Computed example of a mutant assay.
Amino acid sequence: MKFSEVKPRRGRPPKYPRDNPDTKKALIRSGIEMLTERGYMTSDIEGILKKVGIPKGSFYYYFESKESFGREVMASYSYYFAYKLDKSLHNESISPLSRIYAFFEDAQRGMAKYHFERGCLVGNLGQEVATLPNGYRDLLNDILIDWQNRIELCLREAQDIGELALTADCKMLATFFWIGWEGAVMRAKLMKDAEPLKIFIEGFMAGLPR
């Protein structure tokens, strides 16, 4: 059953009552889980509502449509992922380039934790861009640019301490990083193995001008 087919149902009381902010958070969290596994077009509200434990009709109490739900899911995922990035990239106890490697290690553990069933929500939706609602393309690009800017700042810190050559184009390298990283995540999910992530990060690090 797709989002557009949602109908009210009778049954036991919901786990989360209406007007409870935790209900909306639970729906968004469940949406993130599903979209990182299955993408947007094949995600269904039935699985989300079953996990959260609320009636089908309650979905439209919190979200006007599947499209608005998707936007809030993307915003939440963007915030969550930026936080994870910053945990590694702002760790001043290690060098800037080591922080990028630390991000890889954290991401690798995260994918392994869920048996490589979950990829990157932004990457998943990017593969469906031709069929996504209007405006989603710009949202996805904005998120990727934000992530690129964070990597770029880290690379500039590496330049400041002599860990990266001053001739390095940090903006280009940051863009290259995310193009390669998203491909590696997709391949790791396909293979159910971290090897593509390892190959990418080692190749990226080895190719940096020192």
Rank of each mutant, 00 (worst) to 15 (best):
G31D: 02
N91I: 03
L139S: 08
A130F: 11
R150V: 04
G70F: 01
I143A: 10
G110N: 14
E33C: 08
E92Y: 12
A206H: 09
R150W: 02
A107V: 03
M172W: 06
Y79M: 12
A194V: 12
Y114C: 10
L125D: 04
I145L: 15
F104M: 06
P196V: 06
R118T: 05
Q127E: 07
E202R: 10
T131I: 10
P14L: 08
V122N: 02
I201N: 01
I143R: 01
K7H: 13
K192C: 04
L125A: 07
E67R: 14
V122G: 00
A102E: 09
Y83A: 15
A112Y: 04
Y136V: 13
K66F: 09
K198V: 12
K50G: 06
T167E: 15
S76G: 04
K171N: 12
K25A: 08
V73Y: 00
W147T: 02
Y77L: 08
D44Q: 11
Y62K: 08
L173Q: 04
E92K: 15
V73E: 00
A112W: 03
A130R: 09
M1P: 08
T23E: 13
F103W: 03
A194I: 11
A206R: 13
K66V: 04
D44E: 15
G31Y: 00
T23M: 14
H115I: 06
P96S: 07
E46I: 12
R118P: 02
Y136A: 03
K24Y: 00
N134F: 13
R99D: 00
D19A: 15
E182L: 11
Q108W: 04
S98T: 02
K25G: 06
M191R: 14
E202W: 07
R109P: 01
Y114S: 12
S58Q: 09
R109V: 07
L190T: 13
I143K: 00
P133Y: 11
E64I: 08
R29A: 13
N149E: 05
I201H: 01
A112H: 03
I143C: 08
M186Y: 09
F200G: 03
Y83P: 03
G70R: 00
C154I: 03
I54F: 00
V6H: 06
Y62M: 08
A112L: 07
D193V: 07
P21N: 11
Y16M: 04
Y16E: 05
S4T: 14
M1H: 14
K7P: 05
M191G: 05
E182V: 06
V6A: 10
M205R: 05
E152M: 05
A174Q: 02
R210F: 07
E46F: 12
G119I: 05
G119S: 09
E67M: 10
D160S: 10
F69C: 00
R18C: 07
M205K: 07
P133M: 13
I45K: 00
Y77E: 08
D146H: 13
L144V: 14
E64D: 15
A82R: 06
L121T: 01
Y40R: 03
I100H: 01
A165I: 11
I151C: 02
T175F: 09
L197E: 01
A188M: 06
I199D: 06
K192S: 14
P21S: 13
E152A: 02
R18T: 06
M41W: 09
L85F: 09
D22L: 15
